[in-house]
Write a protein that binds this DNA or RNA. Structure first.
Length: 323
DNA sequence: AAGCCGGCCAACCGCACGTGG
DNA sequence: TCCACGTGCGGTTGGCCGGCT
């Protein structure tokens, strides 16, 4: 069953790489760039499978790698990101320039786990060890789900009901989440107002449909996309993830250029549309907004609804896994 | 000095995903 | 829609090394 291994040939080298192999690989990639890993070994004259070459390059030979000990700041960042993302090492590595997923994974298993145990914290659940032991099946199920990123099939079935029916400490921090989202929506409005005040005429124009008072609706037409932030009169907030990504980028650009309105305008005009890999960008965006990952990935172009009260009717969308 | 043991980490393995035919 | 293929990801393995007895 399945495909035969890529390196089934008996004539392939395995195990540690020699200096000569490293040099060959580096020289080849310098000349031809990364990619086409399957055909690379033959072209580079290496008796290795493509996977092995890719791994060696990414984890060891890449020039932008940052070797050496992890700093305390990196430790804390890894712990924080792990509490948000679970064992999504590649996502965590993406937030630590120069570090690889493999390196972080190893570091987690050999250092940080012990460090957290010493602090009395369960490294999987990020809860106090005594609490974790007594938390019951509900919380355990959620934590297991949160740390089961690679086994995706069932995680999308997680419902608000399931989350809120588990132990009280595992319940959604609905009020806090709502507050964060409201804050983000307000900032989005501020961005719109700033754009209007600068009276810029960029091609990705801005249209306003309502006032800010009770109902906020921001529509930013960014190249081919429409950004929609909607705040109901009862305080619930909806926003389209793929599109608030653009808002987020605009915010960043504006912050970085707050001293020069001209520069802001120019940069805003060149703001890029959401990338192809929106799935991952949604996760990064939500993290940056302060949301906690609850076990599944945000699907592309979905809408995030936050309910103001845990007693509200359950939602069964995948997006409900963002807490 | 020799043997044992545990930590560390590079590398491997199997599976899932995205894409193109 | 299905399948094959290339690639990426997370879990696991195994060899090396240093400390301890």
């Amino acid at each position: 069953m399945g495909r035969s291994p890529c390196c089934e040939s008996e004539h392939m080298n395995k195990g540690a790489w020699s200096k000569e192999e490293d040099e060959r690989l580096i020289a080849y990639i310098k000349r031809h760039g990364e990619g086409c890993w399957r055909s690379l070994p033959k072209a580079a004259g290496l008796l290795r499978c493509g996977k092995s070459c890719r791994l060696r390059w990414i984890n060891y030979l890449r020039p932008d790698l940052r070797r050496g000990n992890f700093s305390d700041d990196e430790d804390e960042l890894i712990i924080t990101l792990h509490s948000l993302l679970g064992n999504k090492w590649s996502l965590i590595a993406a937030r630590l320039p120069g570090r690889t997923d493999n390196e972080i994974k190893n570091y987690w298993n050999t250092h940080i786990k012990r460090k957290l145990h010493a602090r009395g914290i369960d490294p999987q659940t990020h809860r106090p060890l005594d609490y974790t032991n007594a938390a019951g099946a509900g919380a355990a199920a959620i934590c297991a789900n949160a740390n089961n990123g690679s086994k995706k099939a069932e995680s999308h079935s997680t419902t608000y009901e399931e989350l809120s029916s588990s132990s009280s400490s595992a319940r959604l921090p609905a009020a806090a989440a709502k507050e964060r989202l409201n804050s983000f929506a307000s900032t989005a409005v501020a961005v719109r107002e700033e754009e209007e005040s600068t009276n810029n005429s960029m091609s990705s124009g801005v249209t306003t449909t309502t006032t800010i008072a009770e109902e906020v609706q921001v529509q930013l037409i960014n190249n081919k996309n429409l950004i929609n932030v909607h705040k109901d009169t009862d305080g619930d907030v909806d926003l389209d993830l793929s599109l608030c990504l653009s808002i987020h980028r605009r915010q960043t650009i504006i912050r970085n250029n707050s001293t020069s309105s001209t520069a802001s305008t120019e940069l805003l005009s060149s703001a890029t549309p959401p990338p192809a890999n929106t799935h991952r960008d949604h996760e990064v965006l939500l993290l940056s907004l302060g949301f906690r990952h609850g076990g599944c990935s945000a699907p592309a172009a979905t809408t995030l609804d936050l309910l103001s009260d845990p007693s509200s009717p359950p939602i069964s969308r995948a997006s409900s896994c963002w807490l």
